[in-house]
């Protein structure tokens, strides 16, 4: 209930932005405000006026319940010693045992720290690089180059981590191109074995990720920019705004909603960074910085057939994610910066 209240009041509290047209768009979107009848009106009365909308959503609600929520019944495994030959409700119940085991394990905290560390770095650099890249691409005059850059920059997304990790390790090896350049330029006098430096590991993972995914991640922002009204730019040009000012004052605010939504979703996913790149780039020297929760879950959960333990880890991750997303969503709504739901 209060959700709609918030969004309505948020819209009237919009921060003033420089562009008049921008403002006009925002005010225009106040349709909901006009449509919104007092909440005292009964649910059924409102529903009866939205038959088309209901028809368009109920099949998918059913789909969600069947395909996404029924399997959640599997979570009971975390409180059992699951043996696959029996059904989910014919198992031996062990209460919170697996959670206790998890929280008593020092390795888990190392993994949690690394996961969050690399998650946050990835989130910050991944988001910034994709937005900056999309902004710059959008400004590119040379149209053929623009098309080619766009197409080529997303190629690494399709290259598996196995191959990317191989290339990265080779480039950073002692006889690799990176050391050759730095030694050649006299910046360092001895080649450095980067992959053997635990303090560099997070950085290497983050940069590899940026290299691989920036072009792909930028696609969404490019699509959002395609929706910006060209008249805004015309107006700005008349005002004599520079290109960088236009980027800052027109393009960015126009895609702000998309940025915020993706940011919120990605914060929710902070803990779900997978393990592939860490496993492939990592080695025994840097393992203390490379162990992440998903790798821990694989090696000590499913890899050992400890389904119950694996499920307990999964539930822990889900709880963290849901808490994060609820916080972010309500913060975003409170400051009037969009919402996820």
């Amino acid at each position: 209930m209060s959700r709609e209240n918030n969004s309505a009041s948020a819209q009237s509290n919009l921060p003033e932005t420089s562009s008049p047209v921008e403002r006009q768009i925002r005010i225009g979107s106040g349709i909901t405000k006009n449509n919104k009848k007092p909440y005292t009106k009964s649910f059924w009365k409102r529903a009866s006026k939205q038959k088309a909308l209901l028809l368009m959503s109920i099949p998918f609600v059913i789909w969600l319940l069947v395909f996404k929520y029924i399997p959640i019944a599997g979570w009971v495994m975390a409180f059992q010693d699951y043996k696959p030959q029996f059904g989910f409700f014919e198992q031996e119940w062990v209460g919170w045992k697996h959670f206790k085991d998890l929280f008593n394990e020092p390795m888990f905290y190392t993994a949690l720290e690394n996961t969050l560390g690399m998650g946050i770095l990835g989130l910050v650099f991944g988001t910034v690089s994709a937005i900056v890249f999309a902004l710059l691409l959008n400004e590119l005059r040379f149209l053929t180059l623009k098309k080619w850059t766009q197409t080529i920059s997303y190629l690494p997304h399709f290259v598996s981590w196995v191959i990317v990790a191989n290339i990265v390790i080779t480039m950073l090896s002692q006889e690799g191109i990176f050391n050759n350049i730095l030694v050649g330029l006299g910046i360092i006098d001895q080649p450095i074995n980067y992959m053997a430096k635990p303090e560099m590991f997070w950085g290497i993972v983050t940069l590899s990720d940026v290299w691989k995914e920036t072009g792909w991640n930028a696609i969404i922002y490019l699509a959002a920019m395609a929706g910006v009204d060209p008249q805004l730019y015309e107006a700005a040009k008349v005002d004599g705004a520079s290109r960088i000012r236009q980027m800052w004052h027109i393009t960015l605010p126009s895609i702000r909603a998309v940025i915020i939504v993706l940011l919120i979703l990605n914060i929710g996913n902070l803990i779900n960074i997978g393990f592939e790149k860490q496993m492939l780039l990592g080695n025994n020297i840097v393992m203390e910085k490379a162990l992440v929760i998903d790798l821990y879950a694989l090696d000590y959960g499913i890899g050992m057939f400890r389904y119950s333990f694996g499920t307990a880890i999964g539930i822990f991750k889900s709880v963290i994610s849901v808490i994060l997303i609820l916080i972010c969503n309500s913060v975003a709504k409170r400051i009037g910066e969009g919402r996820v739901f």
């Binding site: 990790a165 390790i169 080779t170 090896s173 074995n193 053997a196 080695n283 025994n284 020297i285």
Partner: peptide, 8 residues
């Protein structure tokens, strides 16, 4: 080999 533990 100093890369014994890092090379692919």
């Amino acid at each position: 080999d100093p890369e014994s533990f890092t090379q692919t």
